[in-house]
């Protein structure tokens, strides 16, 4: 009887010892994982932040650039080329942009970007049809930029500012003329 108890007791201590051994090993493994995580984080977090910086950078609003005079515009769109100052990382350049400007019947100036919303070709205004036509896949837009054929969206426009008879163009925004 007493033997049995002793035996049971022995078994018990053996088991708890065994358990203790396991938990020590597990503790070490967890600590190892935590230390490894600390090392990896300390090294890689600055690098990852460094790599994704362009995503987190706030886009700067582009300055308005004077392109023409209001008096020169008619209801028929005309093509105007202008330069903007562009800072791309360490490269500063003055790329040329194209805008099609017109004055509507009420005298509001609108400027469309000729980048086709289908696949990015450059559209042209065909005055005989009074439409913008894309040479690539035949997309067509009205003179307000509303998409008629092929293209899924209307042409983008530039934000326009008129001051003292001069027209200034800013950044490209989605078309709001056609939704009216």
């Amino acid at each position: 009887m007493s033997d049995g108890i002793a035996k049971g007791h022995d078994q018990h201590t053996e088991q708890s010892n065994h358990k203790k051994e396991m938990s020590r090993r597990q503790f070490l493994t967890y600590t190892l994982g935590a230390t490894g995580g600390f090392l990896a984080a300390g090294i890689t977090i600055p690098m990852i932040r460094f790599a994704v910086d362009p995503l987190l950078e706030k886009g700067e609003a582009t300055d308005f650039v004077k392109v023409t005079e209001v008096s020169k515009l008619t209801t028929t769109p005309i093509e105007i080329r202008f330069q903007v100052n562009q800072v791309d990382g360490w490269v500063e350049s003055n790329p040329e942009l194209i805008a099609w400007l017109r004055k509507d019947e009420a005298g509001n100036v609108t400027a469309l970007s000729p980048v086709c919303k289908h696949l990015g070709c450059t559209v042209n205004f065909v005055s005989t049809d009074n439409k913008y036509e894309c040479p690539c896949h035949g997309a067509q837009y009205t003179n307000e930029g509303k998409n008629l054929k092929v293209a899924p969206l209307p042409l983008d426009e530039y934000s326009v500012k008129v001051d003292n008879g001069s027209v200034y163009l800013g950044q490209i925004i989605p078309n709001h003329l056609t939704s009216k």
Binding site: P46, M47, R49, F50, A51, D53, L56, G89, W90, V91
Partner: peptide, 28 residues
């Protein structure tokens, strides 16, 4: 190398850019 260019005109300014303009660039 995500920012650096090995070119004598741009190398210096790209290093200057990545160190001073990019977040954590000075650390990396």
């Amino acid at each position: 190398t995500m920012y650096y260019v090995p070119d004598i005109i741009n190398a210096h300014s790209s290093v200057d850019y990545l160190q001073n303009k990019v977040a954590f660039g000075d650390i990396v």
